[in-house]
Design a protein around this nucleic acid. Structure first.
Length: 304
DNA sequence: AGCCAGGCAGAGA
DNA sequence: TCTCTGCATGGC
C-alpha cells in the first residue's frame, strides 16, 4: 500500500477566526481534529490549523497552486474594509465586537445548494448529521493520511439523481428528500446550470434558484451569498428575523416584506456579511454556539 | 409533552 | 397578495 504524500502550506490570515468561520452554520462538513479542523474541498481531504495570524493547511497529494483552498477561505479579503462598510448602528457594533474574525467562505454551488435544501426547519447540528450520512452513503471515499478519516466527498448531482428517493429519506432528511431528488435530477440533466448562474445579476440568479423545487427566498439567498459571493445577499432565517425585530424594530412586529426592504437598503454593499454577523451574534447570545472556536483566544487583540 | 429548528409550497381568503 | 397549515425528524 502506497503511503499518502502530505503537502503543507501556511497562509497569512489576519483578522480571521477559523473556528467561528467553520462552525457558524454556513458550511456543514468541517469537524474538529486535534488543534485544527478537517474537511473535504473539491474531493480532497484538508486539515487547517490556525496559529495567530497564520493558517496552515495540509492535504494529500499534489496541491497545485492552492487556489482551490484560498478561493474557499478568502484569506485575502480585508475584514477591516468589510466592517467599515457596515452602517454605524449599535446592533452591528455589538455583533462585530462579539464575533471578531468571523468570515464568509466561498463554497461550491452544488454542495451549498444541496446542503441548504436540507436545512429547512432543522437545527444546525442536525443538518450536519444528515449531510454526513449523505456523503458517507453516496459520496466517494477520499484519500486521507494514516490515522485520519475516513471521509467522503460530497455526492455529485448525477450520483444523487441515480438514488431512490427512499434512500435519500433514510438519511434522516424527511420531506426534504423529494426536493433533493428533484433538484439533483434538474442539475444532472442540465436543466439547471449552476455554473451559468455565476454570470447573472443577483436578481436573475435568485430567480433561477427559486425556480427549483424546495428553494425559496431564504435558501436562494444562502447560495447567492455563500457560494456565488453576491455581497448584498441577505438570507433572513428565524435567527436573523429575530435579530431584525428585536434590535431594529423593538416594540412592533414588521411584516416580512418590510424587513426584506429594510435589509436591502440599510446594511450597505456588504449586507451579506452584516447578516452573518447578526446571525452568529444571536446564536452566541442564546448559548447555541461558542463565540469562536477554541482558537479565538489566540487572535491578536489590536485594542479598541 | 409540547415546542422549536438557517423554510417551502399549496390552499383558501 | 396575504395568512395558515402540513410536512419528517430529532433535540430539549
Amino acid at each position: 500500500m502506497k503511503t499518502a504524500r502530505l503537502s503543507v502550506r501556511t497562509f497569512p490570515a489576519p483578522d480571521y477566526d477559523l473556528g467561528a468561520t467553520l462552525d457558524c452554520g454556513q458550511a456543514f462538513r468541517w469537524r474538529r481534529a486535534g488543534r485544527g479542523w478537517e474537511g473535504v474541498l473539491r474531493g480532497r481531504w484538508v486539515e487547517v490549523i490556525q496559529e495567530g495570524d497564520l493558517v496552515t493547511a495540509a492535504t494529500v497529494g499534489p496541491p497545485g497552486n492552492w487556489k482551490w483552498l484560498t478561493d474557499y477561505f478568502q484569506f485575502s479579503e480585508n475584514l477591516a474594509d468589510v466592517l467599515a462598510s457596515f452602517p454605524p448602528d449599535e446592533p452591528l457594533r455589538q455583533a462585530a465586537g462579539a464575533c471578531r474574525g468571523l468570515r464568509l467562505l466561498r463554497q461550491e454551488p452544488w454542495e451549498c445548494l444541496a446542503s441548504f435544501l436540507l436545512s429547512s426547519t432543522k437545527q444546525i447540528p442536525q443538518i450536519r448529521h444528515i449531510v454526513a450520512r449523505l456523503c458517507e452513503r453516496f459520496g466517494e471515499r477520499v484519500e486521507t493520511p494514516p490515522g485520519r478519516g475516513p471521509l467522503w466527498s460530497f455526492p455529485t448531482a448525477p450520483a444523487l439523481a441515480r438514488v431512490d428517493e427512499a434512500a435519500l429519506r433514510a438519511c434522516g432528511m424527511g420531506f426534504r428528500a423529494r426536493y433533493l431528488a428533484a433538484v439533483s435530477r434538474a442539475v444532472a440533466s442540465g436543466d439547471a446550470d449552476l455554473e451559468a448562474i455565476r454570470t447573472l445579476s443577483m436578481a436573475e440568479a435568485r430567480e433561477r434558484l427559486m425556480a427549483l423545487p424546495g428553494v425559496g427566498r431564504k435558501i436562494a439567498d444562502c447560495v447567492l451569498l455563500f457560494a456565488y459571493g453576491f455581497p448584498r445577499a441577505f438570507p433572513i432565517d428565524t435567527w436573523v428575523l429575530r435579530a431584525l425585530r428585536e434590535l431594529y424594530f423593538p416594540g412592533r412586529v414588521p411584516k416580512a416584506a418590510e424587513l426584506i426592504e429594510f435589509s436591502e437598503s440599510h446594511f450597505g454593499p456588504r449586507g451579506g456579511y452584516a447578516q452573518q454577523y447578526l446571525f452568529h451574534y444571536m446564536r452566541v447570545r442564546a448559548g447555541r454556539v461558542a463565540p469562536g472556536g477554541s482558537i479565538v483566544a489566540t487572535l491578536p487583540r489590536d485594542g479598541n
